[in-house]
Design a binder for these strands. Structure first.
Length: 477
RNA sequence: GGCGACGUAGCCAAGUGGUAAGGCAGGGGUCUGCAAAACCCCUAUUCCCCGGUUCGAAUCCGGGCGUCGCCUCCA
């Protein structure tokens, strides 16, 4: 049974979806006003793994993740650069999607955009007004009336009017009944894109789009609702209020929040300008390295970004890949010896999945992978019947873990073409000949030539092996 | 000030009552023409500090100290 921590209840509980065998997920996506940084890659990878694990456990997953392609930031950035809001959004979204693909993220089935969901948003606001939870002002703004929702604040555990006094000297908008009321619809302001509405031209407020799009694509039964912890308040608090007001009853959604990526002890954020972009990292590291690094801490923990750890995971994965390359072609022998280590290897996947069942404990699952390899590797190296069994099972288990982690080299990623293969083989043969003649100078020249061309030679008991050296991604491809 | 999270080896990081996973880095060794890779061994008597509960606590309780997040746009 999968256990998931719910921000709303502050505890882990068994995952029981609204519809047996199905899991619906809504994740609050990015506002594409600038290039994505590591802090945006983290939830994308985390949710990819959560989704893959749910699928592995037999659930049919429906995953929706939006783009907030219309809000204050979008408008401000677009007008600053002279670009249209649409073009700005399109450019950043396409780049982001390319990066996610490079990271082997299985994209959500639906990625709705605010600008393409206006009907659903307008209808949603109307329902809230009809039910008495929202009001329109004379100036054409619409606000959610927080006082109509007595349990408002239950997600972020704050009570109304509890803000620090003295720090707030906000000029309240005209017609707003309470300071805590939040905007559902903003009346048109000069120079901004506008849509017609029953309350006059304007555009949606920040939180309404997620409730409306979630309702449109998933209905009221959303099993998991995700985002960064920085969204707990006000975004998810307000979404929750809207959703329950709209539905007319409490909802049973599990709120799943990921910890933030920090850099130099401060949160990485677009507005602070301290973000390390995903593209800059993909130029320096293999996507699997970045992916694994992002999964090396539990998703709810903060992650202090540092280069050194990234290099560490690169090293760790290189070792893992080396083992996999040796083991991947081993065929299972017809007869198997009896040994406890074989039972352990056969039980690996279930133990691995059990670790994931516990609130998606990726660091623990990752540790189990390395532990499995470390303890079994010597048996494989000994060769013989046992070596064959060990190698076969190591490769099998790594492939099982890879279904979630996507950390093994992908087929064809560094494959040479036929002609290239012949040239490479010719060089290898020449080096072998040189070594046999003890002409080591000649042999080392060949090694150097290959290295310059991006291939590292490893002399193994089974003969020389070529490793694609540039551990670089072909990111934007 | 309010709310929340957290503090485990040089670094990263699991572990929520039974005697400290895993990764990186470091040290020693085996193998090798030299490398590389690989393998073996070693590296926290101790989990921010002080009390308490318990046969037993990193894990539970109380009190400190420190860090981060939210309270304003943010994954």
């Amino acid at each position: 049974m999968i256990q998931i921590y719910n921000t709303l209840t502050h505890s882990k509980a068994p995952f029981v979806p609204a519809v047996p065998g199905r899991a619906s997920i809504y994740v609050c996506g990015v506002t594409p006003y600038a290039e994505a940084h590591v802090g945006h890659a983290r939830p994308a990878v985390i949710w990819d793994v959560i989704k893959r694990h749910l699928e592995r456990r037999g659930y049919v997953v429906f995953h929706v993740q939006n783009f907030t392609d219309m809000d204050d930031k979008m408008v401000a950035r677009a007008s600053a650069s002279g670009e249209s809001v649409y073009a700005l959004a399109e450019r950043n979204m396409q780049r982001y999607l390319g990066e996610l693909r490079a990271l082997q993220v299985d994209l959500p089935q639906v990625m709705p955009r605010v600008t393409q969901s206006m009907e659903a948003i307008l209808r949603y606001v109307e329902v809230l007004i009809d039910k008495g939870y929202a009001y329109a002002t004379e100036s054409g703004d619409v606000y959610f009336d927080v006082s109509k929702k007595p349990d408002y604040g239950k997600l972020s555990r704050r009570s109304l009017g509890a803000e620090e006094s003295g720090h707030r000297s906000i000029v309240e908008a005209e017609g707003k009944r309470s300071h805590e009321d939040f905007s559902l619809w903003k009346a048109a302001r000069p120079g901004e894109p506008v849509w017609p509405s029953p309350w006059g031209p304007g555009r949606p407020g920040w939180h309404i789009e997620c409730s409306a799009m979630s309702d449109y694509h998933l209905g009221t039964l959303v099993d998991l609702h995700g985002g960064g912890v920085d969204l707990v308040f006000p975004h998810h608090e307000n979404e929750l209020a809207q959703t329950e007001a709209h539905a007319g009853h409490a909802i049973q959604t599990i709120f799943v929040h990921n910890g933030l990526v920090t850099i130099e002890d401060v949160k990485m954020s677009k507005s602070l300008g301290n973000g390390i972009t995903v593209s800059s990292l993909l130029e320096r590291f293999h996507p699997a390295v970045l992916r694994t690094y992002l999964l090396s801490a539990h998703y709810r923990s903060p992650l202090a970004f540092d280069d050194e750890s990234l290099f560490g995971w690169q090293r760790a994965l290189e070792k893992l890949w080396a083992v996999y390359r040796m083991a991947e072609d081993m065929d299972p022998p017809g007869t198997w010896p009896h040994a406890s280590w074989i039972d352990d290897l056969l039980g690996f996947e279930e133990a691995f999945l059990a670790a994931m069942d516990d609130d998606f404990n990726t660091p623990k699952a990752l540790a189990m992978v390395f532990d499995m390899v470390r303890t079994t590797r010597p048996i494989m190296d000994r060769g013989g019947l046992e070596g064959l069994v060990a190698g076969y099972l190591i490769a099998k288990n790594l492939r099982q873990a890879d279904r979630l982690f996507q950390f093994l080299p992908r087929p064809g990623s560094a494959a040479a073409d036929d002609l290239g293969q012949k040239v490479l083989q010719g060089l290898l043969d020449a080096r072998a000949k040189a070594r046999a003649e003890k002409a080591y100078d000649r042999a080392d020249v060949i090694r150097k030539v290959l290295l310059d061309a991006g291939w590292r030679i490893e002399d193994t008991p089974a003969g020389p092996r070529l490793i694609a050296e540039p551990v670089r991604s072909k990111a934007n491809s």
